[in-house]
């Protein structure tokens, strides 16, 4: 890995998780306050995260295995906020319906 690629790869990795966090935060806020625009902004963050993962796959000198792992992670990111939200709603819903 050359010096420039080191910084570029590290920055892309950090931005990937940051974009994922942006997705989680905005998606959650959008669902909470029933604001579709925020949910869409969150989804845009996920698209950004996936684009960053693609950039990592295309531009960085990581081995193929690591690139596949990062792409798979980015795909899993798409599922986590909606799945977590549903789980939380079910958990709280069950709790409220208990006598």
């Amino acid at each position: 890995m050359n010096p420039a690629a080191l910084l570029e790869t590290a920055a892309l990795m950090g931005l990937l998780v940051l974009a994922g966090g942006g997705y989680g935060g905005l998606y959650g806020a959008g669902r909470l306050w029933s604001r579709p625009a925020l949910v869409r902004a969150g989804q845009a963050c996920w698209l950004l995260a996936f684009a960053i993962a693609l950039l990592i796959a295309v531009r960085t000198p990581l081995d193929v295995g690591w690139k596949l792992l990062i792409l798979a992670s980015a795909l899993v990111y798409a599922v986590i906020p909606p799945a977590t939200w549903r789980f939380l709603q079910r958990l709280h819903g069950d709790e409220e319906s208990r006598p």
């Binding site: 989680g24 899993v76 986590i80």
Partner: peptide
């Protein structure tokens, strides 16, 4: 990955 779930939970 689990930390992302925690962000949603915090919100």
């Amino acid at each position: 990955l689990p930390l992302l779930g925690m962000v949603v939970h915090a919100v």
